Amino acid sequence: MKIEHLQAFVDSQLVANQLLGIFEARQPTIQLYLSKVNELMESFRSFTIEHVRRSQNKKADALSKLASITFAHLAKEVLVEMLEKRSIEAQEFHDLVTNEENTWMKPIREYLELGILPEDKKEARKIRIKAPSNKIMNEALYRKYFLTPWLRCVGPNQASMIIREMHEGICGLHSGPRSIVAKILRMGYYWPAMHEDTVTLLRTCEPC
C-alpha cells in the first residue's frame, strides 16, 4: 500500500505503554507479539501510537451499547473459528497462479521498459497508440481507464481465476457477463478480451 507514516490509536494503556517502552513485557507470548510489532514498525518512516482514554471514546462506547440494545430481541448466533497457528508464527504462502510471460502485455512492457517495438509496422503502430494509457508500477503493468483508478493488467490464467471468483466464489451471485465485467473493473483488473472471456467461461457453469 506504500504507506510511509502510520498513527495508531488503541484503547489499551498496557499495549500502548509496552510499545513505547514504558511498561515491560514479561510474558513470553506478549514478548513475541511485541517483537513482531517492532519488526513491522521498521517498514514505516514514522510510527506513533496513542492511548485513547475512556472519556475520549464516548461515541464508540455509545454506538456499541446502542447496537446491543437495538438488536437484543433478535436471535444471536456466535460463529467460532479455531486458529491453528498464532499470527506471530512464520507461515508460507503460495501464489494460486504462476507468472505468465508470453501474454498480450509483453509487447507493451518491452516498449515501456526498453523502447522495443515489433517488426511489423501495423503492430508497432498499435503499441505506440496503446502505450501512453499504460504504466509500470511495482513491476506490474497498469492501465488507465475511464472514471477509475489505474487497473492492474493480468494474463489469461489470472483472468480465468478472477472470472470464476467473481461469478461463483464466496461473494459470487452467478450474475451475467456484463455484471461480472463491471465488477471486475471495480475491483481494479483489466485485460483486452474481458467480455469475450467472461461469456465463454460462463457457458461452462453448470448451475447457470
Score class of each variant (00 low, 15 high):
residue 114 L to F: 11
residue 90 A to R: 04
residue 69 I to Y: 11
residue 88 I to Q: 07
residue 200 T to Q: 13
residue 68 S to R: 07
residue 203 R to H: 10
residue 32 L to K: 15
residue 190 Y to L: 08
residue 36 K to W: 03
residue 56 Q to M: 10
residue 147 L to Y: 14
residue 133 S to P: 01
residue 67 A to N: 06
residue 115 G to K: 14
residue 162 I to Y: 03
residue 67 A to H: 09
residue 40 L to Y: 06
residue 160 S to D: 07
residue 86 R to D: 06
residue 184 I to P: 01
residue 5 H to Y: 10
residue 62 A to T: 14
residue 35 S to K: 15
residue 131 A to E: 10
residue 156 P to T: 10
residue 10 V to N: 07
residue 8 A to D: 05
residue 19 L to V: 02
residue 207 P to N: 07
residue 159 A to W: 00
residue 95 D to T: 02
residue 158 Q to P: 00
residue 192 P to G: 12
residue 121 K to N: 13
residue 75 A to T: 09
residue 145 Y to L: 13
residue 151 L to V: 03
residue 64 S to T: 10
residue 188 G to E: 15
residue 208 C to Q: 09
residue 199 V to G: 08
residue 122 K to R: 15
residue 168 E to I: 05
residue 14 L to E: 02
residue 201 L to M: 09
residue 191 W to K: 15
residue 192 P to D: 04
residue 64 S to K: 01
residue 139 E to D: 12
residue 56 Q to K: 12
residue 56 Q to C: 11
residue 117 L to S: 12
residue 23 F to H: 14
residue 104 W to C: 07
residue 166 M to F: 08
residue 27 Q to I: 08
residue 189 Y to S: 03
residue 63 L to K: 00
residue 48 T to G: 05
residue 25 A to M: 03
residue 105 M to K: 14
residue 150 W to P: 05
residue 178 R to F: 10
residue 37 V to Q: 06
residue 33 Y to W: 09
residue 153 C to I: 01
residue 87 S to K: 06
residue 42 E to G: 02
residue 9 F to V: 11
residue 86 R to W: 03
residue 181 V to S: 06
residue 198 T to N: 07
residue 77 E to G: 06
residue 88 I to M: 05
residue 115 G to P: 02
residue 185 L to K: 14
residue 28 P to R: 15
residue 205 C to L: 13
residue 178 R to H: 13
residue 205 C to H: 02
residue 206 E to S: 10
residue 119 E to M: 08
residue 59 K to S: 13
residue 25 A to V: 06
residue 15 V to D: 01
residue 75 A to W: 02
residue 150 W to Y: 06
residue 159 A to E: 00
residue 19 L to R: 02
residue 136 I to H: 02
residue 15 V to L: 15
residue 92 E to V: 12
residue 87 S to E: 01
residue 119 E to I: 11
residue 119 E to F: 09
residue 39 E to D: 04
